[in-house]
Structure formats: structure tokens, C-alpha cells
Computed example of a mutant assay.
Amino acid sequence: MTRSQQLLRTVVPVVGAALFMVTVPYYRGWFDLNVYYGTVDDWIRHGGRIYDYLLPGTGYGFTYPPFAAVCMLPMLLVGHTGAVVGGVLLSAAASVLLLRGPLYELPLGRGGLVATACLFVMLEPVRDTFSLGQVNLLLMALVYADGGRGRFAGVGIGLATAFKLTPGIFIGYLLLTGRRRAAAVATGTALAATAIGVLAAPSASWVFWTRALWDTHRVGALDYVSNQSLQGALARMGAGRPVWVLAVLAVLVLWAYRVRRATEAGDDEAGMALTGLAACLVSPVTWVHHLVWAVPALALLVRYGHRAVAAALYVVLCSSVVWLWRDDSSGVDGLLGGSTYVWICLGLLALWPQAPSRLPSPSCVRRADEPGLEAAS
């Protein structure tokens, strides 16, 4: 490949991504980061209570455990603008780690990292994570850097679980795959981090674990179209909580079966990807930006040779299609279109392909036994 061809392979994806980003998405103005910053500012500087604070002009407040608020205290040292810049840089760093780990599965050859990064940033969950100032990519990088392997197996998953409860399903993944020591370490780490939150904010901890955790309406209406979990889809259909509980149990059984099959085949990458899909489905609230956990599954589909399917799903996940039903998700079209991402996650979990016996060569995909993040992919 000539130098001009290499330059072209770099410039075209960057220009294409830039044009897409300035014409297609709409940005969220760091909404979630404003909630984070306002909460810790009110708590530390004005003597407020973590779960009483609401972002001015909205009904939204802090929804994570107190340990997360403790972790966010450094924002006060750099101010709001510094917090925004720091959040973007941290998410960018996490993206690089993920692109060199679970998302390295895309066999794009030389210059492939730039092309993959451009494809990655155009995904709606990734765009929203950046523009909301969300923490999804950071927690995902923690979980994948851990993966239940290595000297500190379980620590990253435990910290992510203490920060935001959704990654706790990866402790279940460790148990399903026979990594009991890593599961114990993850559980112990989560409990120790939670204890830090209790010591730092005892009254807030009591409020969170006895009341705020169980009040799903604190984060918004369950039937809002951005909620792409099973609960969101069922709420839009008017189904009650018993139906949701049964649906969650069915998905967890399916997830356990798929993970065990992947483990028997020695395919840890699939087990992690399937767990991410299950996390999106069973969480009571899965906003669109939480769907970054589904992205590794798309990368693995490419590696398995299902490129057409992966490409089609990728286009849908870039399209913001669910927002067409933002005002009215009734009818058959609302049932299908308004919960598009739910059906994608459920379909991938149910129809997950068996790994081919011959995977791409190490020149395209890093060996799973290499140290670091790649080993956790």
C-alpha cells in the first residue's frame, strides 16, 4: 500500500465521521455531568443531601450509590469546565482501551484503528455518552480490563459494581464460568467500596439502599422511549411488573445457557459480550447511552464472519431510529420501532452464533492470552 493510499484510508473515515457528527446527532449539553457536579457541589459546599438535590429546572437528581459521589469529588477541584474537559478526556482514554481490547476484533488491517474509532464514535450510545458526560465507557473499560483474569481478577468488576449497580451481572458471569475466586474478590471489592460510601455519607447511604434504589421513577418515566430495557418495552405495552419479572427470569436463563456454551467452546470474548447484552435487557432502566455494553457483540459478529448482519445492526444503532416514536409509541409500529434496540439485544442473545473453528490470524486479532486489556476481551 502506497503512502497516499494509507493517508486516504485515514483521512476518509475521519472526514466522514466529522460530517456525520455535525449533521446527524443532536447533543445533550453535558446534562448528566451537570447533575453529578451539582450534586457534589451542593453536598460539600452547601451542606445539602445527595439524594435531595435536583438539577435546576428539572426533576432529575443523583441516582448512583454514595460511593460514586465520593469518586466524583475531584470535580470540585477543577471546576465545572475542568470537569467537562476531564470527563471527555477520560471517556476518550477508555475508548482507546476498548478499541485495543474487545473492539480490536474488527479485522480492518493497517490503519484499522483509526477507521474503527470513527465507526465507534458515530454509534448513538457512544455519542450520547460523550455529550451527556456519562460514565459508561469508563465502567466498561474497568470491566473489560478485569475480565476475571490476571493477578487482580475481580477488582475492576467490583469497583464498577460499587459505582453503578448494572455491572454487577459480570460477577454472575464469573460464577458461571467457574472463576469463584475472582467472583469473591469482585464481591469483596464492591462491598469495601460501598463501605467507603457509607463512611463518607451515612445518612445518604441509608436513603439510597432503603428508598432511592427502589424508586425507578427517580431516573425518569419507565415507558420513555429512551428506556431500551425489557422493562421499558413492556411498560410501553402497558404490561405490569409481574410480566417483567417473568421476562427477566427467562432472559437470565437464556443468558446463563449461552454463556455456558461459550465457555465450553473456550470463547471468553463471547461470554463477556453476551453478559453485556443481558445487562442491557434485565436492568430496569437502560437509557440509549447504556447500550455501549452491546457494542462488543457487534465486533464479534464481524470476527465470526457475519459482516452483513453486523453492518445492518451498526447502521440501526447509529440512526437514532427509536426517537421517531418519542411522542407516541402505540400501535404495532411503536411496538417494533420504539423498542428497536431491545429487540436487537434480545435477538443477539437468543441467536448468538457459535464461534467458527478458525478465527482470524493473530495479525488481525490479538491473542487472548496476552497480558493486559486484550486478555480480557
Rank of each mutant, 00 (worst) to 15 (best):
A250Y: 03
G240K: 06
A247I: 10
R258G: 02
A235V: 04
Q231Y: 11
V251A: 12
Q231W: 13
L254P: 00
Y257W: 15
A239K: 12
L230P: 12
R236Y: 01
P242S: 11
V248C: 03
W255V: 03
Q228D: 02
Q228G: 08
G238M: 09
L234P: 10
L252Q: 12
P242K: 09
S229W: 07
L252K: 07
S229Q: 01
V253S: 09
M237C: 14
V243S: 08
A235I: 07
W255T: 02
L252P: 05
R236K: 10
L249R: 03
L249H: 07
L249S: 13
A247G: 12
G232W: 08
G240Q: 09
G240L: 12
W244I: 07
V225K: 06
V243G: 03
V253Y: 00
G232F: 11
Q228W: 02
L230C: 04
Y257M: 07
N227Y: 09
W255S: 06
G232N: 06
A247K: 13
N227K: 06
W255H: 07
R241G: 02
R258F: 03
V248Q: 04
S229D: 02
L249E: 12
R236A: 05
G240Y: 02
Y257A: 10
A256D: 06
Y257T: 09
M237P: 08
R236Q: 15
Q231H: 11
R241K: 10
G240T: 09
V245A: 15
Q231A: 15
A239I: 03
N227V: 09
A250R: 04
S229M: 05
L254M: 08
L254K: 03
M237D: 13
G240C: 04
A250W: 03
R241H: 15
V248R: 01
G238S: 03
A239Q: 11
P242I: 05
A235F: 06
A239G: 01
L254V: 08
V251W: 06
R258K: 15
A239T: 05
W255D: 04
V225A: 11
L234A: 14
W244E: 14
V251C: 13
W255K: 06
L230Q: 07
G240H: 12
Y257S: 03
S229F: 12
G238Q: 07
R241E: 15
Q231P: 01
A247Q: 14
L246F: 11
S226Q: 13
L249A: 15
A235K: 03
L249P: 11
V253P: 01
